[in-house]
Design a binder for these strands. Sequence first.
DNA 1: AGGTGCGATTTACGCACGTAAAAGTAATGC
DNA 2: GCATTACTTTTACGTGCGTAAATCGCACCT
Lengths: 357, 357
Amino acid sequence: MDDTENGAGKPRGPKPKIATMEELSSAIGVSRPTLSRYFQDPSSVRSSTVARIREGLDRVEYVPNFFATRMNRKSTGMIGVIIPYLNDLFFTRLLESIEIAAMEAGFTVITQCSHSDPAIEARAAETFMSMSVDGALVAPLGNQSDFEIHERLNARLPFVLFDSRPSTMPGVDFVGTDHTQSTGNIVEYLCRVGDPPVFLAMPRVNFNAVEREVAYVAKMEELGHDPLIVGTEAVRPDWHFEPHGFAILDHFFSRGQFADRSILCVNDRVAIGALQAAATHGLDPGRARRGGLRIAGHDDYPLCPHTIPALTTVAQDVEAIGRAAVARLVKKIRAENKPDDQLVTLFDGVLKVRESA
Amino acid sequence: MDDTENGAGKPRGPKPKIATMEELSSAIGVSRPTLSRYFQDPSSVRSSTVARIREGLDRVEYVPNFFATRMNRKSTGMIGVIIPYLNDLFFTRLLESIEIAAMEAGFTVITQCSHSDPAIEARAAETFMSMSVDGALVAPLGNQSDFEIHERLNARLPFVLFDSRPSTMPGVDFVGTDHTQSTGNIVEYLCRVGDPPVFLAMPRVNFNAVEREVAYVAKMEELGHDPLIVGTEAVRPDWHFEPHGFAILDHFFSRGQFADRSILCVNDRVAIGALQAAATHGLDPGRARRGGLRIAGHDDYPLCPHTIPALTTVAQDVEAIGRAAVARLVKKIRAENKPDDQLVTLFDGVLKVRESA
DNA sequence: AGGTGCGATTTACGCACGTAAAAGTAATGC
DNA sequence: GCATTACTTTTACGTGCGTAAATCGCACCT
């Protein structure tokens, strides 16, 4: 009562902190159940009461307890996202589009990163189950993932895989790129504009890597060319793609090989290493379209327009994948026990012709 | 009782799902409080009972309800992390080191990304408060952040800023790079090995950008050179750094300027754009150390070793920053109401001399 | 004035678990 | 064989809020 500042003016100091709805109710003279209803749907409360509540909330610092609110609701309003690796702009873009789509759908996303470790991936899945997220979006690690964990998630809650699809989990919703189309697309382009490409692969840490290899071979044979794949046997099967691309091509260039070939890299990060190897050997990929060295990638990594020379590649439609994955998951969340029509959504890759090929 | 498979063998099908500890207790014949104690500290339960519980848990599918457990504990075991932007490998590396350090300290981290939007940043802070995380680690957006939200967080729970420090929040713990040292370091190097550098800046979206500008000017004057800053007036103050670097230098190169200068870019992504501009104009940065074009950056972006030419830069000690930020936060969490000795922890940048300068 | 109907309040219970106190049981020592 | 000790179980209450049912207050209408 001795606070002389509590007129109509804005309160100066920190507002009084209120911990529970109970206190809030006695602080602004509205019953607790009414407050509860107000927070869930202000329109279910008489407008004069809404005004009183708003005014009261303005005078104090109160944040509802998330745990307590969600424990009694059927839905937590959260979706869990697992990605395998953070230090890759491809995944960050994917994650960004997922977060935005989820936000628009009214969900809070909890992201966990596997950091290339199946144990961490498993822990993340447990966290999601124990927090009873409404659904989970998972980009698996690769063939080292612990699929039992994915199965448990899938059995327990709405579940959609994205980006990379394990052959060991049929019958699960998936959203990703049609690598047969995308890789076929750029192989066809390379063949049309110049010589048939060599495929610079990577260690098969990833199902997509294999899918692209297979797609490359198929398209080459369809066009009547002999496929040639290099780079599958690397020193270490990790995520250091650029050094891998560099090492493989440096090896060949040093022996005078491949200096006038077309080279299709399994992804853009490998291609960046490839460009570096070319520069090291004084080569200028893309200068002579036909008959000269050309280098192309896959994914449309954000840096592609700024490499030297700018990298020709196929873009994955990251935004569409993110949006579709969220849309599918939200649909499953709302449907609950509908007949399980599995849905595989694949997006086409679109060609980005730049300077390098 | 008609399940013929329940011998000693591994159960084949999906295990029976158990939702609550109550059911669990009656399923394996151990009282619920005992189970509760088991989950918190198995050593507080007799070993023969532990064995019975373990055996029982092996036969069913049970995950404790996170909300219910945390609601009654003083601590949630979670720390909230806010980063301003995802599509930047600098932040992903920082985040990675934070996640690992937090994991080692026994905390679960909840990451929220501001996506360059102060409103989203504010929402993330609210989420943290409502989930009563044990502490928050925040890398602010820049001068467009809503600092009132940060103040509220800081007043409510253990709070540490990292990476970027608003001048408007004195008295708050901070962990980051000593930009005076790091920028001074590379300015000194550039001057020693060649001509004094021009500073290619960026729109001041970020406090670090300003700090580096100031540090550049100071070091130049200390060495008796005239500072020259370009690029502060950009088309749009967003996170498209590479195009910015390209545009500014393309502008100058087109008029025959700067082609034989040393150019220090405010960060590596701007430098990547700068390298591209150089290549476009047939320039080869770093070839002639003294008297020729040189380009250097700041941060040691993961791609620096793979640019053409490889980029000379100063590395921020991302791992140390992440670890220190977590360590400081954990200390504040454990200390609670200790005397508030503010702590500003700054790490030195270390020179990475490569080819471009 | 009395009846009607809507919104608000009161009351009471539930969620899944933590936790403290009291009472029970088993293992150990002499 | 009995007391001591250690662990368990039982019982009961608390956490902050959702939610349903019953009660209450108020403006409106005839």
